[in-house]
Each structure stands twice: as structure tokens, then as C-alpha cells.
């Protein structure tokens, strides 16, 4: 009986103890919580007003037939009409296709950058000089680059075609003026501008590979190609994955280059989703329709990201 009572008391004590502690912890926590909210509030409020609220608005407006110059009152809900119209809009489909073509720039850039990174990492003097060289286009404004390439690609007297004709190609492509070649030109320019970023990231990844791995491979008598295939590629695969995701997402966002370089032309041959969205929104003022494009774009980016996350388990070596 005594023992039981004591036990009971002990149990009660044990039960009470955490309660006291918890309250004290909670008190400290509220102070911490307020400090936390204070620190993040500028960021969170700014993002809420400038990003989260607009994206919700875009979703709502995408179900209406609203035209910007008409007042808010003149807004009718039309259900999924904008979305069904989009799916049969040839220009929209053309823009989506062009975006898919643009994605080809990503693996090409990554391949070139990896090759350059391997050479620059081990086999040259003046390493930082080379880093600066390839990084320069990344620093320069897209507008300046687009203006320069407009002249370089000029069909009749641009230096590129002068050179091609000089080495005996009689009928060089008309680049940006030819709807079959315009997108290729855009791809070439975007490869040129993004090599620097990919190169820097790959260089950092290569430097993180432990030297012992190579030494072990040397002892086993592995050749350069074997080392490349079985050590380097698997070791940089997380980087490859990162560059692939960011590269593809970035290619969906290439707006400035298209606006300045081609304005989507000739004949929508370089129109991409974001350009078509811009044109519908700010030239034709079709707010409802362009909002539907926004939401579609967002869904596509979501699918791309999700697919890549699912796929990475198969080939990324962490």
C-alpha cells in the first residue's frame, strides 16, 4: 500500500515535470516565434503581394473572357473556354513546339561545358583566365548580345555569312531572316551564352572528386576513357542532373532574347510560350486568354520538374 502510494506520487511527479518544462519552453518559443516572423516578414510579405497574389489572380482571370482595357466589372466567367481554345490554337502549339526544340540547346551546352571543364581543370595553365573568358557572355546583357548577333547573322553582309561565302559555301543560310534557320540561330546564341555557367558548375564538381579514386584506377590500369566513363561521369551526375533541370526550366523562360532578337518571327518560327503569352497580354490585351497560357506554362514546368525528380533515381549517383 505504502509502496503503491509512493509509486503513484512518483508517477505524478514524473507527469508534472514535463508540464512545467513545456510551459517554460513554450514561453521561450513565443519570443523566438516573434523574432522569426519579424526576420522573415519583409520577404514573405513582398513575395505574397508580388508573386503569390498575382498567380492566384492569374488562375482566376484564366477562367474569364476579360480584356484589359475593359473595366473589372466587364469580366465574364467562361469556364474552361480559354483552355480549350488554346489547345486548338495553332500559334500556341507552334510556340510549344519551338520551346521543345530550344531544349536541345541544354544537353549540347552541357556536353561542351563538360569537355571544356575537363580540359581546363587539369590540362592548362592560367585556369582563371579561361574561366573569365567563358563566363563573359553570362555577365553581358541579353539585349546587347541580341543586338550584336543580329548584325553577325545578317544574311547578306554579316561577318558570319561573309566568312561562309569566303570559304566557298555559295548559298549560306539566311539565319534570323529564314524561318527554317531562325530557331537554330537562337539555339546557337543560347548555347554560347550559357556555356560559362555550366562550365563553372562542372569545374567545381570536378574539383570535388577525391583524387584517391583516380589513383586507385591508375593502379588497376584504367585508361583515360575508362576513368572518364566510370569515375568522372558518375561522380558529376548530381551536377548533370542539377544543370539539366535548371537548364530546361531556364529555356522555358527565355523571353528577352526572343523579344529583342526576333520578336517571335519570321512568321512565329521563333515564338515561344512566354513570347506568345506576352504578345497576347500586351499587344492584343487579351488578359483572360494570356492568363490561361500562364497557367498552362506553370503546369508544364511542374510536369518537367516532377518527371526529372522521378527519373533521377535511375541515373544519378549520390
Amino acid at each position: 500500500m505504502e509502496v503503491e502510494k509512493r509509486n503513484h506520487n512518483l508517477n505524478r511527479d514524473r507527469k508534472d515535470q514535463p508540464k512545467v518544462k513545456k510551459r517554460k519552453y513554450l514561453k521561450m518559443n513565443t519570443k523566438e516565434t516573434w523574432a522569426g516572423y519579424l526576420f522573415i516578414s519583409p520577404m514573405v510579405i513582398g513575395t505574397s503581394i508580388l508573386v503569390i497574389f498575382p498567380i492566384i489572380m492569374a488562375l482566376i482571370v484564366s477562367f474569364t473572357d476579360w480584356v484589359f482595357i475593359r473595366g473589372i466589372g466587364d469580366m465574364n466567367f467562361v469556364g474552361f473556354d480559354n483552355y480549350t481554345a488554346l489547345l486548338s490554337d495553332d500559334l500556341f502549339i507552334q510556340s510549344v513546339k519551338n520551346n521543345v526544340w530550344l531544349i536541345f540547346a541544354v544537353p549540347i551546352t552541357m556536353f561542351l561545358s563538360l569537355m571544356l571543364a575537363v580540359i581546363i581543370n587539369k590540362h592548362v595553365y592560367m585556369k582563371s583566365f579561361f574561366k573569365i573568358v567563358y563566363f563573359m557572355p553570362y555577365i553581358s546583357s541579353v539585349v546587347a548580345i541580341a543586338i550584336v548577333f543580329q548584325l553577325l547573322f545578317h544574311p547578306s553582309y554579316g561577318p558570319i555569312n561573309e566568312f561562309l561565302m569566303g570559304i566557298g559555301i555559295e548559298d549560306p543560310p539566311r539565319w534570323l531572316a529564314d524561318s527554317n534557320w531562325a530557331l537554330v540561330s537562337v539555339i546557337i546564341i543560347s548555347i554560347w551564352t550559357s556555356i560559362g555557367f555550366n562550365l563553372i558548375i562542372y569545374l567545381a564538381a570536378l574539383q570535388n572528386i577525391p583524387l584517391e579514386l583516380y589513383e586507385a584506377a591508375d593502379i588497376d590500369g584504367a585508361g583515360i576513357l575508362k576513368k572518364f566513363r566510370h569515375i568522372m561521369l558518375p561522380m558529376v551526375s548530381p551536377t548533370t542532373f542539377f544543370l539539366l533541370i535548371t537548364g530546361i526550366i531556364y529555356s522555358f523562360k527565355s523571353f528577352e532574347l526572343i523579344v529583342v532578337l526576333t520578336s517571335g518571327g519570321p512568321g512565329y518560327s521563333t515564338s515561344v510560350i512566354v513570347y506568345y503569352l506576352y504578345e497576347q497580354a500586351f499587344e492584343y490585351l487579351r488578359s483572360g486568354y494570356s492568363s490561361a497560357i500562364s497557367i498552362m506554362l506553370l503546369l508544364m514546368l511542374f510536369v518537367v520538374t516532377a518527371l526529372q525528380w522521378l527519373g533521377q533515381k535511375k541515373w544519378v549517383n549520390y
Binding site: 508580388l50 497580354a281 492568363s291 506554362l297 514546368l301
Partner: peptide, 24 residues
């Protein structure tokens, strides 16, 4: 949760919200 929410907005391309931002 707040951090994830903020991070998620990174996926939204700037062009997708141009119209509502313009209105705002």
C-alpha cells in the same frame, strides 16, 4: 511550411504573372 511555400514560388516564371502584376 512557410519556407517551402516561399521556395515553391521560385518555380513560377516571371512572365506568368506579368498581367496580374501589371494590374496591381
Amino acid at each position: 511550411i512557410i519556407f517551402l511555400l516561399v521556395l515553391a514560388t521560385f518555380m513560377i516564371p516571371a512572365q506568368a504573372i506579368l498581367v496580374p502584376q501589371f494590374m496591381l
